[in-house]
């Protein structure tokens, strides 16, 4: 428990640093947000200055940062320059979409990666292993937008079994929602699949050479039991670490996949905010994503204790 609290406390400077960096980065970006707000309106000089004042951009940078931190500390992430929507409300609307796609992408990749990785390791350097290795590298080389395009043309245009674009909320229609998730989640998950398979394979090969595996074999335990009950768990540490680190990657991939499949997720929100110089929105979303990544890794740390009794015992001793 104390360890938990200590870990949580170390998060505070991390978050402050992230907020400062995002604030500086977005403020130093070339391009005047006021011009973006008035884009296409043939603005007068007076209009541009009025909008700058309205957005608080006429104040010096340090004052703006302090105001921002004070507001955020009170739970006010501000309102978008462009859409005037409160930033937290925007994140709240988009989060379920990105989470659902991310979760399904993770499920798709893990459900496929575990058996593939385990089998590759079991029959290391065999024909199947070599085929899986080749296929993995192939998948790794395909960018997610290309996977997305292939999937879209095959399943939506050619077979017409899944929708090409669009999003139905889970609360609206579960069936439609799930149908809409399949293509983006697969496009996003398939790249991760290759990483997970390769990682699990190498760890598993090492584990299979351990004494306790030989012992299990000697006892005559069935192969599937040795592989999945005894060898898989100790081989999963790297996989788990990588999954924690991949949360950021999933969001990065979501930017492309959400844009392509026209999904109202965080990735698209961020993309639009950046290209429109909607600085308040960018700051809010990046801060939120940084927090998510930090907490995801925190959760992975906790999961280690579940996987490895030694860590668990160490924690209770501390």
């Amino acid at each position: 428990m104390r360890q938990l609290v200590r870990k949580l406390v170390t998060l505070v400077p991390t978050i402050l640093l992230v907020s400062l960096l995002t604030f500086l980065l977005t403020s130093l970006l070339p391009g005047d947000p006021a011009l973006q707000v008035l884009q296409g309106a043939e603005p007068t000089q007076e209009a541009i200055e009025a909008v700058r004042k309205d957005l608080g951009l006429d104040k010096p940078l340090p004052i703006r940062y302090l105001n921002y931190v004070a507001d955020v500390a009170q739970g006010d992430f501000g309102r978008s320059y462009r859409t005037r929507q409160p930033v937290l409300e925007a994140i709240g609307e988009r989060l379920p979409v990105t989470l659902e796609i991310g979760l399904f992408a993770l499920i798709v990749s893990i459900v496929l990666a575990v058996p593939l990785g385990v089998f590759s390791a079991y029959r290391a350097n065999g024909v199947v292993d070599r085929s899986i290795t080749t296929a993995s590298f192939g998948l790794l080389a395909i960018p997610s937008f290309m996977t997305a395009l292939l999937l879209l043309y095959f399943f939506a245009v050619y077979l017409k079994v899944l929708p090409a674009t669009g999003w139905t909320r889970l609360t609206e229609d579960v069936g439609k929602n799930l149908k809409g998730v399949i293509l983006p989640a697969t496009a996003l998950g398939i790249g991760q699949l290759a990483v997970y398979t390769r990682l699990l394979r190498s760890d598993m090969i090492a584990t299979l050479q351990e004494d306790f595996v030989s012992m299990a074999r000697a006892k005559g335990l069935p192969t599937w039991r040795i592989l999945f009950r005894h060898a898989l768990r100790p081989s999963s540490f790297s996989l788990l670490t990588i999954i924690g680190l991949q949360v950021g990657n999933l969001i990065g991939g979501a930017v492309i996949v959400e844009q392509f499949f026209a999904l109202p997720g965080i990735g698209r929100l961020l993309f639009d905010a950046i290209s429109q110089r909607d600085l308040v929105m960018v700051q809010g979303v990046v801060l939120f994503l940084a927090l998510s990544t930090v907490f995801a890794n925190f959760a992975v740390d906790l999961l280690y204790t579940v996987l490895d009794p030694r860590i668990r015992r160490g924690a209770s001793a501390a």
Binding site: A156, V157, T165, G166, A262
Partner: peptide, 18 residues
């Protein structure tokens, strides 16, 4: 109105009926 920024996806959505 459905905003579909990607040109390929928008045309595909017309072909597939979205």
């Amino acid at each position: 109105f459905k905003p579909i920024p990607d040109e390929d996806a928008r045309l595909a959505s017309l072909s597939s009926g979205e």
